[in-house]
Amino acid sequence: MSIRSTELPGIGTKYELETEKGDKVAIVFMDPGRIQLYILEKESETPVAAELNAWEARRIGSILTGAIIEAEREAVEIAFSALSDLRISIHTYIIGKNLAGKSIGELAIRKMTGVTIIAVSRKGKNVINPPPSFSFEEGDVVVAIGEHDQLKTFESEVLGV
């Protein structure tokens, strides 16, 4: 089960792997950033293939390595290979007028939504693990952690967006 890499002149580089069960997987990196992903099933002569762009390839690569880290605007999703059904998202939000002066405990964020505020950035200064007594000001950037659905609840129930 070793990976064989071959040069295909005029095309790019091909990486090939034969799996334990005898299927073949090949990845071809073509010169202007196109990538083709092939699977040739054991005893089949016709491969199936998908063409990926660089972003899609990286995404699939990170799923396969087990740690999904997707930087999508201000959100990051983390997954662990050993805990396949655990998906943690980290999201940043900006506090609006409606929450100014209210504290974390007062809003009962964790109780209501399951989301935990893990950091607040205020005018360039960071507060890590803010206590329940911490009061928000307008323009604070908060970092919230939770599951995807919990964050959705947080957005609608607490932030009111």
């Binding site: 295909l8 090949a26 071809v28 063409e51």
Partner: peptide, 9 residues
């Protein structure tokens, strides 16, 4: 070969 996705062969 690229278009017909045959590079694994």
């Amino acid at each position: 070969l690229i278009e017909n996705k045959k590079l694994i062969l």
